[in-house]
């Protein structure tokens, strides 16, 4: 519960911590030029800041710092069982950015990471090199690149999208997925859509956005972005994930939302839809309870195999309700339920 006088809170990225090895990368120089007023502090390793045990990630959200680091290993990972793999056997994810500036109360990042400071790994070329090796081994790779962050919200700081777009364009063996809640669709009009780059928009009822997805664009803005890009033939997925139980009125909340969705978006043009209820590794949830003031964190979830989620009856009811509605308008083969 933070009711601070915003006047004296330092601006975002007032401090930039830079690994000594990361200084020489063009991305670092580009960003430091952009933030010429920030205090720059040289560090040996990003974990000196990021992995300190005594941090309060909720307070840090008021004025997150930026950490520029060089990734040394782990350029990609096999997809988690908690995320859908779109039936892609070679489903991988990569995290060249850690953390996010949006503030979704249910976001697992605050449970997974000890810090809310944002990390950019600046050696993107090393990512591309390692992913190229993976592609040559597997032939086809589905790669989610907005996994431990919402990368599109950082476009104003560095044009990461441009780099990944060019990478996808050159490498037909990879399909890149970017998941986002952002509303910045205009930047995509500078690019031609390509078949191996998918944008996945996470959408929720306005009530859920207002209550639990702080600082994110509203539903209208997200749907405007989606529909404009559909018109320009971009490959768009929708993620109705996580579905959040909003109390006894959840059915009405989601019914209104779904009705609005089908009135605003021509679902026939959508590539796929993912539906899943809120779920989180129980150790992340435990950590979130130490700091959070959101009811979504304190719901009486049930834990199965170390994953906390809604009790089976609520889960089933919510999934059935949403999926049956969508099936009226959308090919059920392309609805992925998690």
């Amino acid at each position: 519960m933070i009711k601070s006088n915003k006047n004296y809170i330092a601006r975002k990225f007032s401090h930039i911590y830079v690994e000594k090895r990361a200084f020489d990368y063009p991305i670092t120089q580009y960003i430091l030029n952009k933030f010429s007023k920030s205090k720059v502090v040289a560090i040996e390793n990003y974990n000196e800041i990021f992995s300190r045990k005594n941090q309060n990630p909720y307070v840090q959200k008021l004025s997150p710092s930026l950490i520029l680091a060089e990734k040394k290993e782990g350029f990609f990972y096999k997809g988690s069982r908690l995320c859908h793999n779109f039936q892609e056997e070679n489903f991988y994810y990569t995290n060249f950015i850690l953390n996010c500036i949006f503030e979704c109360d249910y976001c697992y990042l605050k449970g997974m990471n000890l810090s809310s400071h944002i990390v950019f790994f600046v050696n993107l070329e090393d990512y591309f090199e390692k992913i190229n090796i993976l592609i040559s081994e597997k032939n086809k790779v589905y790669l989610s690149i907005s996994y431990d962050s919402d990368i599109l919200v950082f476009e104003g700081i560095y044009p990461f999208f441009n780099k990944w777009y060019n990478f996808a364009k050159k490498n037909q063996g990879v399909t890149i997925e970017i998941r986002t809640k952002s509303a910045n669709w205009k930047k995509f009009t500078n690019y031609d859509p390509i078949s191996n780059l998918e944008l996945s928009w996470s959408i929720s009822p306005e009530e859920v956005i207002n209550k639990f997805e702080k600082k994110t664009p509203n539903l209208e803005a997200r749907l405007t972005a989606t529909s404009n890009l559909l018109k320009k033939n971009w490959k768009i997925n929708l993620a109705l994930d996580p579905l959040i139980y909003t109390g006894k009125t959840w059915r009405n909340t989601y019914y209104e939302f779904l009705k609005y969705l089908v009135s605003r978006i021509n679902l026939e043009l959508i590539n796929s839809i993912t539906v899943g209820v809120f779920r989180i590794p129980v150790n992340y949830l435990r950590r979130m309870k130490r700091f959070s003031d959101s009811s979504v964190v304190f719901f009486p979830y049930e834990t199965i195999e170390n994953v906390a989620s809604y009790p089976e009856d609520i889960k089933e009811e919510m999934l059935n309700f949403v999926v049956s509605f969508l099936e009226e308008y959308f090919d059920s083969e392309k609805i992925y339920v998690i």
């Binding site: 809170i9 330092a10 401090h15 205090k39 040996e44 000196e48 800041i49 840090q60 008021l62 710092s65």
Partner: peptide, 14 residues
């Protein structure tokens, strides 16, 4: 190394 999380605008050089 130790680092303070400096979250406020202070009238101090660093």
């Amino acid at each position: 190394c130790f680092f303070s999380d400096i979250l406020l605008e202070y009238d101090l050089e660093e």
